[in-house]
Structure formats: C-alpha cells, structure tokens
C-alpha cells in the first residue's frame, strides 16, 4: 500500500454513464494484482466527504485502468475530472484473486463488475492458464466495454434483453459451458450484481467447483481501520470478529463458500 499522486492520462466514454480512465501511477501499478483496488480522492467534489474505492481493471506500463459507472455523487464528480488532473491515490488495496493450481478459469462478470475480471483475464493469459470470460449486462446501453474490446478479448457477451451478444443471464451460459466441458482444475471467479453472484454460487456448489467472488461495499478508510464495510461470513471458529469480514482488507475477493449470501444484500442497502 502506498499513496501516490498521478495524472489522469486518458478518459474514454463508453456510454454516457460508463467510462474508462487511465491514471499514471507507476509505483502503485507496479505493485498491483488483479482483484485489488484503489482508494481515490476526488478533490473539490461537492457532496463528497470520503474517498472512493475502485477496482483496478488493468495495468499498462505505469498506467492503471479504471472502468467506472456513474452511480452517485462521487462517480459523477470523477467523470467530470479533466484529463491532466493530478489524482491522489492509495493502493493497491485488498486481497487479489488466487489462481494457483488452476488449469481452467471461468470468469463471470455482470455490468461494471466486469472491471476487475479484465485485469484477471490479462494475468491469466500471461500465465498461459486457459480462460473463458462471460460478461453480461442488462442491455446494450449498459454494456461496460466497447464491441471491439469484447471481440479482441474473446469475451462471451450476453445481455438480458439480447440487444448485445446472446440473450439471457450470463449464469445460463456458464451452466451450459459446465455441461459440455470437463470440470477438472476449473475455478470460477465472479464479480457483479448480487443476484448474478448468488446464482453463480449456486451453480458452483452444484458442480462442487471452487469459486472466488469479489464483493463491493461502502468504505470509509479502505485499510481495515474504520470497520465500516463489514459483511457477514459463516465463520463458526470463534474468530474475534465473530462472523464479520471487512470487504476492504479481508476482501474484496472472498472464497464464495464463506459468504453468507442470504444476508449479503442487507450490507448493500
């Protein structure tokens, strides 16, 4: 974890509410792994007190890619930051994805949740681990990548209404994949809306597949100090934290078996 100030080098609008940012933070970039995030200060933003946690979507040299969807005051202010602005970043934070002993990776992303899985795909390809990436969204207008990148990355695209890629939930595609392939050495990685992740979790339990899920939450500090981003886990080992884990520091990547999916939605409300 370091604090670094770096310029916003590039900003590309994918849809009016989804945009791609590239920050020049070589020191943070050098230490970053897929699954980790930055805690970003949006200076001078009105209606914002705290930093914003954003998944790292990729690294290119000293540049860090962030894929951002406008959901509130913080992300709208971030969208308005002009290229060239110096940004204050703390990172990389959190536990990265684990792909040791994996011979086939299945990446399942929903909407803007696809961001950390892009970085994971890059890392897996770098390690020559066979990878299939399923990325869904509600509709074409909310699809977080441009079609050219989807093509280049050989992503299996899906939208709920069939306006881009195949029609239907991305979890259906994963289910189909599993029905037609060998499961030896398969590991599943998910990030996206709660309903999607719960369905992926159900499928993984059905096929007895290891599954790592990347969660989000509102955060204060980002380093485990404020304990604001707690989520319920089924610990049962007398852990002093008594069944809570912090998304910022114990996650954001968790073993999906640990997560109390039935009550997770309460944390996000």
């Amino acid at each position: 974890m370091i604090q670094e100030c770096g310029a916003l080098r590039r900003k590309e609008v994918i849809h009016p509410e989804i945009f791609d940012l590239w920050l020049e933070c070589p020191e943070v970039a050098h230490q970053s792994h897929a699954g980790q995030y930055l805690h970003l200060l949006i200076k001078g933003a009105t209606g914002v007190t705290l930093r914003r946690p954003l998944s790292i979507a990729g690294i290119e040299g000293g540049l860090i890619r962030l894929l951002v969807r406008i959901v509130g005051e913080g992300t709208s202010a971030l969208a308005a930051v002009p290229v060239g602005t110096i940004m204050d970043v703390i990172g990389p934070l959190g536990i990265p994805f684990d792909y040791s002993k994996v011979s086939q990776a299945l990446l399942v992303g929903g909407g803007i949740g696809g961001a950390p899985l892009l970085f994971l795909q890059d890392e897996l390809i770098g390690k020559s681990i066979p990878t299939d990436y399923f990325l869904g969204a509600k509709t074409q207008d909310e699809y977080p990548l441009d079609p050219e990148e989807v093509e280049r990355r050989s992503i299996f695209a899906a939208t709920d209404d069939g306006t881009f890629g195949s029609a239907g939930f991305v979890s259906l595609q994963v289910n189909q994949w599993l029905q037609h392939h060998d499961h030896a050495g398969v590991r599943v990685y998910s990030c996206g809306p709660l309903l999607m992740m719960r369905e992926v979790d159900r499928i993984c339990r059905l096929y007895d597949l290891p599954h790592q899920a990347s969660l989000e939450n509102r955060m204060g500090c980002g380093i485990g100090v404020c304990q604001g981003c707690a989520v319920r886990v089924n610990d049962g080992k007398g852990d002093p934290r008594g069944g809570y884990r912090l998304v910022c520091k114990d996650g954001p990547v968790f073993d999906a078996m640990e997560i109390e999916w039935a009550v997770l939605g309460e944390s996000y409300r």
């Binding site: 914002v48 604001g228 319920r232």
Partner: peptide, 10 residues
C-alpha cells in the same frame, strides 16, 4: 463482533 451491516453512510 460489531453491529450488523450497513454500518456507515456518507
């Protein structure tokens, strides 16, 4: 263990 989530609000 602390209180149930959500625990913070900006």
């Amino acid at each position: 263990p602390g209180n149930p989530a959500p625990r913070i609000w900006e």
